[in-house]
Design a protein around this nucleic acid. Structure first.
Lengths: 139, 139
DNA sequence: CCCTTATTGATAAGTTTTTTCAATAATGAG
DNA sequence: CTCATTATTGAAAAAACTTATCAATAAGGG
């Protein structure tokens, strides 16, 4: 039995066929998969697997820390006006207020390291910090 | 005339009431706004502003670099299985393949600086790098 | 102050995600 | 190993979100 099945079990959830499929497909893929993509990949292999279940399973896995959600280029939702030169945001988890912060230079070192380790050429990045703004810290 | 109106004009676009509203609302808000939120905020103030226009305007503004799209916690789409201890991803823009990379310690310094500068308390972060994987670099 | 034409917005179509609920299957008990 | 309980599934439908269509409107040059 796999590690994650253990974990699922001990958290009081059942180890089911569909859940096994979702995990298997994710593990086999090198790229992140969308719910739709997972569903189709499963279909292609005769998996017993409904789209609704894929959504539910991913939510559960995420809650248990078994999968990560990554942001594929397009698709998301909040917008902020740009202030020139800066690119990163710090968003308050409580009230939603956001500030931009300077200094992507600090990433340069990290990026160089990663490039050396992975062989990838890094062209861009997405960095956001989450926390509490001064006003919300007292609450 | 504002800066951005100038820019719009010179790029060959017209400066319209709805576009002015979208920009005004964004500038007045401290938090990132979703298209829906913008639409409602406009409505509340009798703005002449349709939801469809909000979408189009945001797309245009983003293209011109006037606004940034940020990822609000929930909502997005790709999933990857977790490998223990690591939290960051590097995604190939060409083939979509992704690798996790270690070393969030490198962010510690940056985060400490930001906390000092902004007064926010940083609780979490989202860091993703985009680039080309070894295989796709030759193409 | 017109005329041209980009832009708007209502409606409708297309997607994506969530809810509902009867049928199914996983697990523990016997 | 079998049964009973109950979490889980999946089809269908509802809800939410985003994009396309197109006649009416308004921006901005002449």
């Amino acid at each position: 039995m796999q590690d994650w099945e253990e974990l699922l079990s001990q958290a009081g959830y059942r180890v089911t066929e569909p859940r096994r499929w979702v995990m298997r497909l994710l593990l086999e893929s090198t790229a992140p998969l969308s719910p739709q993509a997972l569903f189709e990949a499963g279909r292609a292999r005769q998996a017993r697997l409904g789209l609704v279940t894929v959504y539910r399973t991913l939510a559960l896995f995420e809650e248990l820390g078994l999968v990560h959600r990554v942001h594929l280029q397009e698709d998301c939702h909040g917008y902020l006006p740009t202030s020139p030169g800066h690119r990163h945001f710090l968003i308050c988890q409580h009230c939603g207020s956001a500030v931009e912060f300077p200094g992507s230079e600090d990433l340069e070192g990290l990026i160089a390291t990663i490039e050396a380790q992975t062989g990838y050429r890094v062209a861009g990045h997405l960095l956001q910090l989450l926390g509490l703004c001064p006003a919300c810290q007292g609450m």
